[in-house]
Design a protein around this nucleic acid. Structure first.
Lengths: 124, 124
DNA sequence: GGTAGGTACTTACGAATAGTTAGCACTTCG
DNA sequence: CGAAGTGCTAACTATTCGTAAGTACCTACC
């Protein structure tokens, strides 16, 4: 029984998973974890702009999808380690590649935006 | 002056572009346009669940970023064609590859979610 | 010939989601 | 002995999203 999803169908569960993996914070968390195991606080500091609430929420979703592994060490102060699963590593590599390409092409994007903006204001 | 972005910095413009390209609707629109030029209505029907408002908004953002080309034909009834730019094609290919992989691995994701859920309820 | 339907949007409003702030229980550092 | 650090969670608010309707124009149908 080989079940295959369809992201274009909004009733398909892949939609939800795709949103977690490519969403605003999930994508950044995944990509950051390619560096290796990280603690909650490390991720919070390295993915700038994320709130603790959103980081917790994001990591829970990724853990449930089987993309991220969560290990609690019952010590004081608390220590929780996050790392990528096999599944997560694959996804993270693809996301990271896309992000790298976007970073490289920043000048092209800025030029496109500027051109678009002048075209719009010029038509008024 | 080679300017390179950093998606982990929340003040960097790449953050915005990454959100458009990987976001809930932007990613689906980009991937769908890999099939070739499409009209507004075609996209609306093929990316199920999207509202006209969100599709319009999404396509405007992608156009501004230089990922999508918009061509208006001044005919009655109105006809507007959307297609990928060179920049957009590169991004769309990467997104599409990731989506394909997620679709293939749906059983793995479902298994992970089920395992997570039983683990949670079991601990109560 | 009047109504229904199709085109690509835009606008207003209620609903869902995201972000902000504060708190917890405990330890170490100054 | 107060402040800071740990990884969260709960309550509140700001922002975004989705839904429904309106627009201007034509075609087809009854």
């Amino acid at each position: 029984m080989e079940l295959r999803g369809d992201v274009y169908d909004h009733n398909c569960p892949t939609r939800v998973i795709a949103n977690h993996a490519t969403g605003r914070w999930g994508s950044l968390a995944l990509a950051k974890l390619l560096d290796g195991t990280k603690r909650f606080g490390e991720l919070r500091r390295e993915v700038t702009g994320i709130s603790e609430k959103m980081l917790a929420q994001t990591l829970q979703a990724l853990e449930r999808d089987g993309l991220v592994r969560r290990e609690v060490h019952p010590v004081i102060p608390p220590r929780v380690d996050y790392s990528l699963t096999t599944l997560g590593t694959h996804a993270a590599k693809q996301i990271s590649e896309l992000f790298g390409w976007i970073e490289e092409n920043l000048p092209n994007f800025l030029a496109a935006q500027e051109e678009y903006d002048t075209r719009q204001t010029g038509n008024v």
